[in-house]
């Protein structure tokens, strides 16, 4: 692992180019989660009534928020990175400078995480307008930290997929078969209590399940049991994904 502070330069390059797209990405990264909040939260919520003593929207917001982080960082490190690697040849010019391949890849993951953080923060603002927000400032900070962790995790997982993707279409397998189902198996829209045993067991392996748990605790201020384990699971998976993502992507870049 030949990592250095130059990760920041790669991040900075993305930031400079981002200023031209910033408004369009706001619309895009808010679109889908907002759609979930409105349809499920308000539409379905009207039928659901109270949910654990609070309106359904309060149940829904923490999960949708971490999902929006997941989606943004995933898409950035799938499509965004793929374009830079194959069409723009940007990585070829990067690695001819003192920036190493590892720096470049880690910089992309960091950028994906940042995009996730922006999406999540926007959701937080929107939810606040809907009168749903974490119980304290400390919990807001905790939530922001969580977003960074989830961003790095899903950015790294996406990097692994990008490292062997032959073309854009390949990404559909990952988003349709893994990311979208994860939304429904991780307790974002309904609690997992009434899942049969094997489905509960399966859900425990999904990183989003743990992220949703932490997020929900941050909003409600009631620490759920196993909060530490949730964090531990995310950090372990994230470290592995980050390492493997860099190794595999480096193999694609350097021949």
């Amino acid at each position: 692992m030949n990592l250095s502070y130059r990760i920041y330069y790669v991040f900075y390059r993305n930031l400079i180019s981002y200023k031209r797209f910033v408004l369009t990405t706001f619309v895009v990264s808010l679109g889908q989660p907002l759609f979930y909040l409105i349809t499920f939260g308000i539409g379905m919520g009207a039928y659901m009534g109270y949910f654990g003593g609070k309106p359904y929207l309060n149940f829904l917001v923490p999960g949708v928020l971490v999902s929006s982080v997941m989606l943004s960082s995933t898409f950035e490190c799938l499509y965004g990175t793929f374009v830079k690697v194959t069409y723009q040849k940007l990585f070829d010019s990067l690695i001819a400078t003192p920036v190493s391949a590892e720096d470049a890849i880690a910089g992309e993951v960091a950028w994906g995480a940042f995009r996730g953080l922006i999406s999540g923060s926007l959701m937080l603002v929107v939810a606040t307008f809907m009168h749903v927000y974490p119980v304290s400032i400390v919990n807001v900070l905790l939530l922001l930290v969580l977003m960074v962790f989830i961003g790095i995790l899903f950015g790294s997982l996406a990097m692994i997929v990008t490292s062997f993707a032959p073309n854009f279409d390949f990404f559909n397998y990952y988003t349709e078969l893994i990311i979208t189902p994860m939304l429904f198996f991780s307790g974002v829209f309904f609690p997992l209590d009434r899942f049969p045993g094997w489905m509960k067991f399966f859900a425990k392996f999904l990183p989003l399940t743990h992220a949703v748990n932490i997020s929900r605790s941050a909003f409600s201020g009631e620490p759920s049991p196993g909060l530490a384990l949730d964090f531990l699971y995310i950090i372990l998976l994230e470290s592995a994904a980050f390492y493997i993502g860099i190794k595999l992507m480096k193999r694609r870049l350097i021949k």
Binding site: R6, Y12, Q88, L90, S93, A96, T97, P98
Partner: peptide, 29 residues
């Protein structure tokens, strides 16, 4: 890499940036 300048065969300039930004970012690297 620090003491070498490379003029590549394939044009791999950064299409998201201007001429000036391309050079400024590269100087940062």
């Amino acid at each position: 890499k620090l003491i070498t300048g490379v003029i590549p065969q394939e044009i791999n300039l950064d299409p998201d940036l201007t001429v000036y930004e391309n050079l400024m970012i590269f100087a940062k690297f």
